[in-house]
């Protein structure tokens, strides 16, 4: 239906008859009183799931509403170190740094007695810092790690009487890493000794002491020359390649 501008005027006047009013006003439906139907089971089940999820989230993460807990134990920003993401911009991590980092992880086995700081417990567990057994050659350390020690022993002027279990069940690599860590972290090394022990050297230690059965005693260890090093090639600290 074609109409002119007058339609609009009717609308504005307010006194026009209903029939002349603009169509949008007339055609509109009336808003009916709200219903009270049941929505059925599905939305209820959905609401139940939402409640369980929300409640579970709250009680898992609220830490008992403690005001002093700041970080949830399960909050872990991606911990994987990435050495190279392919664009060549990321910095290379030196071989020795990752070797030491792994060694520190293995040292977790030792820290219960020797303490995380390597100081030991006076009278109970011998220290690693200032210990002549650590500062000396690697052969004695290799022997201790592979077979353990039993009986009285003097370390840094104090005597101890304990059993250190054998760690020969660990892989050569892990033993090499933990000896490297202990020597570089806690030892005071002689000039020219970088403290590094390689997998190859630990294999040599196993070979060297394969006739030993049971833990070493102090006397047996003393039979190994103090400055004897495990045989094996020295490595480049940056790349880990044999020199």
């Amino acid at each position: 239906m074609s109409t002119g501008d007058d339609r609009n005027l009717d609308y504005e006047s307010g006194t026009a008859s209903v029939v002349d009013m603009h169509d949008s006003v007339r055609r509109e439906k009336i808003l009916q009183p709200s219903g009270a139907e049941s929505l059925g089971l599905f939305p209820l089940v959905l609401c139940g799931l939402v409640l369980i999820a929300g409640g579970g989230f709250l009680f898992k993460n609220a830490n008992g509403f403690s005001d002093s807990t700041y970080i949830n134990s399960d909050y872990r920003p991606d911990p994987k170190p990435v050495t190279d993401d392919g664009d060549g911009e990321a910095e290379e991590v030196a071989w020795i740094d990752s070797w030491m980092k792994e060694g520190k992880k293995v040292y977790g086995n030792c820290a219960a007695c020797h303490q995380p700081t390597g100081t030991g417990a006076p009278g109970m567990f011998p220290p690693l810092t200032g210990s002549e057994w650590v500062d000396g050659g690697t052969a004695r350390l290799g022997a201790i790690l592979v077979h353990g020690i039993n009986g009285p022993m003097t370390v840094a002027g104090q005597s101890y009487n304990q059993l250190m279990p054998a760690w020969g069940t660990l892989s050569d690599k892990k033993i090499a890493q933990v000896i490297t860590y202990v020597r570089r972290e806690f030892g005071s090394l002689p000039e020219g000794d970088d403290g590094v022990v390689t997998t190859e050297m630990v294999a040599a230690a196993r070979d060297m002491f394969k006739s030993q059965s049971g833990p070493f005693t102090e006397a047996q260890l003393k039979a190994i020359p103090e400055d004897k090093q495990l045989p094996g090639a020295k490595v480049d600290l940056q790349t880990g390649d044999p020199l």
Binding site: C47, V50, L51, G54, F57, L58, N61, A62, T69, N72
Partner: peptide, 24 residues
């Protein structure tokens, strides 16, 4: 994971989930 007691973000997170009830 920010510098607030852990329960504050946890309560907010739970509220975000509960708002889904209104959506349903």
């Amino acid at each position: 994971g920010g510098p607030y007691p852990a329960w504050i973000p946890a309560v907010s997170g739970a509220a975000v989930v509960f708002v889904l009830l209104a959506v349903v």
